[in-house]
């Protein structure tokens, strides 16, 4: 059973996001980068499959040299090897352009399952897994919370979170599965794991190695473009709702939640 986990390096979710004064991007200097939390579920699941069926787990990660730290995190957890896609041409790509490069890299890898996080917590797109499946001609199931691979490894039964319940699906393998919270509890790498990770193979591939054209990836290969970044409207300081007793305050609260917060 071979799995490939597509991993993205993202700023930690607690990061303070500062936008460049001209709105052309965010300031990345002070950001602490980590593995996308949803991708960790994929790594953990890949390791579980490996423990149960044997085979290998591979990380596929696109990004500049700083992503090596994130790749090592996965290797420390127990992933066997990693492929890093590093080329300036990959930069600035949207989900489509990114998936295109990933798909190309995947053609050179062996897999029965490809895991992607259900979304990356930086761009919050929730697209790459599905597009990847399409480009590779594979089925996909998004938002999985449970995975049982059949003994013949030709299919799997997954629990998938949908509105109002859990859908239990059978999917033919190979397939792309996007992982949701609840699938598992990602392990904490042991220290020997961390040490071993430093010696595990990391295959760095650039545009030429993938045999792709610079026009089909990165910014040039993208179908969407971010034209401007803006800060969200300043969240008003907490409001204490004034009023004479619950008969006044409760309706006010309901109204605010409905009209201002729009959460009801």
């Amino acid at each position: 059973m071979n799995s490939v986990v597509c991993v993205k390096q993202v700023p930690d979710t607690e990061s303070v996001i500062k936008i460049k004064p001209d709105g052309s991007g965010i300031i990345t200097d002070d950001l602490k980068f980590v593995m996308n939390p949803y991708d960790e579920y994929g790594v953990e699941e890949a390791l579980k499959l490996k423990e149960k069926f044997g085979g290998s787990a591979t990380i596929l990660c696109m990004g500049p040299s700083r992503v090596v730290e994130t790749i090592r995190t996965g290797l420390a957890m127990g992933v066997d090897k990693a492929v890093q896609l590093d080329d300036p041409a990959f930069e600035g790509g949207d989900a489509f352009a990114t998936a295109k490069a990933l798909a190309e890299a995947l053609k050179g890898l062996e897999y029965d399952v490809i895991f992607c996080g259900k979304q990356a917590v930086d761009d919050d797109l929730s697209q790459v897994g599905q597009i990847l499946a399409e480009l590779l001609g594979l089925p996909h199931v998004s938002l999985i919370q449970k995975l049982q691979v059949a003994d013949d490894k030709k299919s799997a039964v997954v629990d998938r979170q949908v509105e109002g319940g859990i859908e239990v699906l059978k999917v033919l393998l190979p397939a792309v599965l996007t992982t949701q919270k609840g699938l598992n509890e990602p392990r904490y790498a042991s220290l020997p794991g961390i040490m071993k990770a430093k010696k595990k193979p990391l295959d760095v591939k650039d545009l030429a190695a993938l045999g792709l054209n610079a026009d089909s990836v990165g910014c040039n290969g993208s179908k969407t473009m971010i034209t401007k970044y803006t800060a969200p409207p300043e969240r008003a300081a907490g409001k204490i709702i004034e009023g004479e007793g619950p008969q006044e305050t409760a309706p006010k609260l309901v109204q605010l939640l409905r009209e201002e917060a729009k959460v009801i």
């Binding site: 930690d12 607690e14 990061s15 303070v16 002070d30 602490k32 980590v34 509890e185 392990r187 904490y188 790498a189 042991s190």
Partner: peptide, 26 residues
């Protein structure tokens, strides 16, 4: 990696945000 489960978040928080609660380091 054998410890009470609630500790994992503490380790992660210290690693990523240098405090046990995981509040943004900045």
């Amino acid at each position: 990696s054998n410890f009470p489960p609630e500790i994992q978040a503490v380790f992660r928080n210290m690693e990523n945000n240098s405090n046990p609660w995981g509040i943004g380091w900045a």
